[in-house]
Design a protein around this nucleic acid. Structure first.
Length: 420
DNA sequence: TCTGGGGTCCTAGGACCC
DNA sequence: TCTGGGGTCCTAGGACCC
């Protein structure tokens, strides 16, 4: 049995945790640089606020309904996510954190004392709410995709109240029949449109298809989804939590940027993030993708990228930073208003099997990186940083409606006053 | 006045080589 | 003079997810 536990409109719910005054109000959260609406609380959802629309286009609508608008407060969300995942982990020995607000639980060789999945789901919900004040939905199913479907039902379909269980044929048919094919995990807008042309409208319609036929007409991924919807597990636990095959760090700037030094600093910051992520999954990369770009919405948009081939696979921030310095001139161009840049690690390999070069000295300083990681883990990210990262504020995000970092900054600690 | 997220994986099609 | 196959690698862009 698998379970998927995730928060209801996580970012918006997180904003309500330390601000009870807005709990009964419509709340939305914006993406980086206050670009788009990315989280809509259930109360705001009833007002038909569209998701992933540019903020400036829905501004008037939000104002009309007196919607509370917040910038993304990642410091807060990351910390609340940790707390939530911690609580959830107590309910199963195998947890896989799939995203900031979702985790899969895999019950195998272990049955909870409470031998009723409904009750168990509600216990998870109640406990998470009691300890974090975050609302979660829980879905159970015999495959990851069915657990996802149950989770969708738990939160979106009538009569489930936050928990749904697919543990019988009736339950499976009932939930899949009520689900639009577009709401299945792995079926996006594009695929859903094509499926509907073939009169495959509900999740159940898709489940009834022949996997081989789906593979022929579409691809192997969809064939697997069909199998999963029928209770045949294709995404094995190890596959669900496989190592990433590429790792990126990219960001748009709060304001357009023309200064080469600042742009280079931004790139170096991205490369240290990528290096840290690589070390976290014990991977090395042989090739870095570096890119810079002006806004795609601009006339004569500028875009330049290049692949840097490292002499030996690495996850060393210093090696990456040197690579950037070496080729930066090829990326930069005068009079371009830069909007975005990023670094990606391609062609990853395991740290365990490092291939060295007979003729090139290995420049990877594993000890130094280990030290850097442990200091930063203890005292906060970027306590130790490369000199070339120069804590510049110039390219930092625009966050006009930022809430306090209640849990990660002393100055932002919530104050409780009581009158005796 | 101007404003449009970030991450990962996959694939079609082009370049190049034999 | 004209015509032609198959493999590998690379890249840009698409699809999907949150």
């Amino acid at each position: 049995m698998y379970a998927l536990v995730d928060a209801v409109a996580f970012y918006a719910s997180a904003e309500k945790v330390f601000d009870p005054a807005i709990r009964s109000k419509p709340v939305v959260v914006l993406t980086n640089n206050d670009g788009c609406v990315c989280a809509i609380c259930p109360i705001a959802r009833r007002l038909n606020i569209p998701k992933f629309q540019p903020y400036f286009k829905v501004k008037h609508l939000l104002a009309k309904h007196k919607v509370i608008v917040r910038s993304s407060n990642y410091e807060l969300y990351a910390d609340l996510s940790d707390r939530m995942m911690n609580v959830i982990s107590r309910f199963c020995d195998k947890q896989y954190i799939y995203s900031i607000d979702e985790s899969f639980l895999h019950f195998t060789g272990f049955t909870p004392l409470i031998n009723d999945w409904h009750q168990y789901g509600h216990l998870i919900r109640r406990t998470v709410w009691r300890e974090t004040k975050l609302p979660v939905g829980v879905g159970f199913g015999s495959t990851p995709t069915l657990a996802k479907a149950a989770n969708h039902a738990a939160k979106k379909l009538k009569g489930f109240n936050g928990v749904a269980v697919i543990d019988s044929e009736q339950a499976r048919l009932r939930i899949l029949a009520a689900m639009d094919v577009a709401d299945i995990w792995g079926v996006g807008k594009r695929l859903a449109k094509k499926l509907k042309q073939l009169h495959i409208n509900s999740a159940l319609d898709l489940a009834k298809q022949d996997p081989l036929q789906m593979k022929r007409l579409f691809n192997v991924v969809l064939a697997r989804t069909v199998d999963e919807l029928n209770g045949r597990t294709c995404l094995e636990w190890d596959e669900v939590r496989q190592d990433k095959r590429e790792i990126f760090s990219t960001r748009s700037f709060g304001e357009r940027l023309t200064d080469p030094t600042v742009l280079k600093t931004a790139l170096i910051n991205h490369c240290t993030i990528v290096a840290r992520k690589l070390r976290l999954q014990r991977s090395l990369t042989k090739r870095l993708l570096l890119f810079v770009a002006s806004s795609p919405h601009e006339l004569n948009a500028y875009k330049k990228s290049l692949v840097y081939e490292l002499p030996t696979s690495s996850a060393d921030s210093c090696v990456f930073a040197n690579a950037i310095s070496e080729v930066f001139a090829q990326l930069y161009q005068q009079n371009v208003r830069f909007y975005k840049c990023g670094v990606g690690a391609l062609e990853l390999s395991s740290q365990q099997f490092q291939q060295s070069d007979l003729f090139t000295p290995n420049k990877n300083n594993i000890k130094l990186m280990k030290c850097l990681d442990s200091v930063n883990a203890r005292y906060g990210s970027n306590t130790l940083a490369l000199a070339s990262q120069q804590q510049s504020q110039a390219w930092h995000m625009k966050r006009e409606f930022l809430s306090p970092q209640y849990t990660t900054r002393w100055l932002h600690l919530p104050k409780i006053s009581c009158n005796l």
